[in-house]
Write a protein that binds this DNA or RNA. Structure first.
Length: 467
RNA sequence: GGCGGAGUAGCCAAGUGGUAAGGCAAUGGUUUGCAAAACCGUCAUUCGAGGGUUCGAUUCCCUCCUCCGCCUCCA
């Protein structure tokens, strides 16, 4: 497949460096609260990338970290009166539950930052030894940006107006200032009172790792000095990923990531999500409004990953209808397969080839979704083996997109309250007696109680009204 | 201010130098006692505005307008 690369700004074919397994790293969540759907846009698209590779026959090694030590986790764990470990374990569990609901494949490796502090310290020592880092008086260690000429390539820093020297002078009056240059970033943070019990010993005194370094150290541990792809939200391009490149290339000497995959932000009602605007949604918030995680997933893949996606609550309702339509189309297609037709493992995509091509062309998920519907239309007059092959293609595509279609709603009569059943039966009798007025009154009563009645030729069905 | 991105029907949203996918909503019809459901249709002479290049631009170039993101630890 072809995918846009942030660093070279071109679309490039994805091929495993080692010729067999595509190894990639995704910056994971900071576990200090529930992830919101903006976070999940990134994780869902990374999941689709992986699924597309795997559906296309490429083996993958997916590493995604858990950031469980930083300012926010420390601050909020203290506020909650919990140890950092217990606090982050709780939110990690919640994150996993959300991922599961969204149909995200668990990464093959999910390292935690606190469990890799020795590796981080080792990397810092190497950076110091090679002249790329220096310790300050307060026990912190900084990366010396001036020592790495390649700094800023990913985010095109050199084309920006950021004048490090000037800014430094403006702030040089501050006594607390420990860095040589304002642009230098921290690798190790010396212990401070507000850190509470959260500090670790190091050659530079007690303290804790800097955020950027965590990822570099874990990547090195599991993917080595050169690997296939690195991914995250666009906001991580600078400084996070820029700093990772600097640290890793200086310490390890490898190429680091061969490809950079960044996912654009999710907007809500045309603007940025924020707590103060009250438009920051979690899966739980949306579940409370009657929406499923799969509907959320459908919305999140409904726009191209490089464009901002404008999320609205209405789009979730549209997703529900769209998923139902796909499910119905699949059922109708399945119904046209004869009992002797077993070509369910077709290698091609049949009417869904265009959808598959879209996915392989810069991960065009909305194009692929469109192709699902047009494919179903094209498949409408296929029968037997051809229908079986088409359904196989449809299902492979579903798997690549990570969508699970809703099953046909069959109301279990045991779950219908007796009073509702009686009401429905009374209405049916009134209807048979052609007592329309009575029948309509009874139906409106059922509606009030949240039930929809559908009349058939010889019988009727009851369904809970969709919210 | 610098850098990056976006403006396509009521909403969400693809795409292309050759004449606008798809979904939702809406709406017409068939069906139904009426509905619902189902099925069959309809639904952008036009792609933020104005210029330019071209036989031809929504697609390339320029200008303008609007919106969004990043600019030191936000996916």
């Amino acid at each position: 497949m072809r995918l846009f690369d942030t660093l070279t700004r071109t679309e490039r074919e994805l091929r495993p460096i080692d010729g067999s397994t595509y190894r990639f790293y995704c910056c994971g969540p900071t576990v200090y609260g529930p992830a919101h759907i903006g976070n999940f846009r990134t994780f869902v698209l990374q999941d689709v990338l992986r699924r597309t590779l795997e559906t296309g026959g490429t083996r993958t090694l997916h590493v995604r970290n858990i950031t469980d030590v930083d300012d926010k986790t420390i601050r909020d764990s203290i506020k909650a009166g919990q140890s950092l470990k217990d606090f982050t374990a709780g939110w990690t569990k919640k994150f996993h539950a959300d991922c599961d609901q969204l149909g995200l494949l668990p990464p093959h490796i999910e390292p935690s930052a606190v469990e890799h502090i020795p590796q981080q310290i080792a990397m810092i020592e190497e950076l110091i030894a090679k002249g790329h880092a220096y310790a300050s008086d307060d026990g912190s260690v900084y990366f010396k940006i001036a020592s790495f000429p390649g700094y800023g390539r990913l985010s095109r820093l050199d084309e920006r107006e950021l004048d490090m020297g000037k800014t430094q002078n403006a702030r040089s009056s501050s006594d607390e200032y420990e860095k040589d240059s304002l642009a230098d970033f921290v690798l190790w943070k010396g212990r401070k009172p507000e850190d509470g019990d959260n500090f670790w010993p190091s050659p530079w005194g007690e303290g804790r790792p800097g955020w950027h370094l965590e990822c570099s150290a874990m990547i090195r541990e599991y993917l080595g000095d050169s690997f296939d792809l690195h991914s995250g939200g666009v906001d991580l391009v600078f400084p996070h990923h820029e700093n990772e490149i600097a640290q890793s290339q200086c310490a390890c000497g490898g190429h680091f990531a061969a490809h950079w995959f960044h996912i654009a932000h999710l907007l809500v009602d045309g603007g940025k999500m924020s707590k103060s605007l009250g438009n920051l949604y979690t899966l739980e918030d949306l579940a409370a409004r009657g929406h499923t995680a799969m509907e959320v997933r459908y919305v999140l893949i409904g726009a191209h990953y490089r464009k901002p996606l404008n999320f609205t609550l209405d789009s979730l309702s549209a997703a529900r209808e769209a998923l139902a339509k796909l499910a119905k189309g699949a059922r109708q297609l399945a119904a046209r397969i004869g009992p002797d037709n077993t070509r369910l493992t077709s290698a091609d995509f049949g009417p869904f080839q265009a959808a598959w091509d879209s996915l392989n062309h810069d991960l065009n998920t909305p194009g692929a979704l469109g192709g699902m519907f047009t494919g179903l239309r094209e498949a409408a007059n296929l029968t037997g083996d051809e229908a079986a092959a088409a359904l196989a293609g449809f299902n492979r595509l579903l798997r690549a997109l990570g969508l699970t279609l809703p099953a046909e709603v069959v109301q279990d009569s045991a779950q219908i309250p007796e009073a509702v059943k009686a009401l429905a039966e009374a209405r049916w009798q009134a209807r048979l007696a052609k007592n329309w007025a009575e029948s309509d009154v009874l139906r409106s009563q059922l509606t009030e109680q949240g039930w929809t009645v559908k009349d058939g030729k010889d019988t009727y069905t009851l369904e809970r009204t969709q919210s």
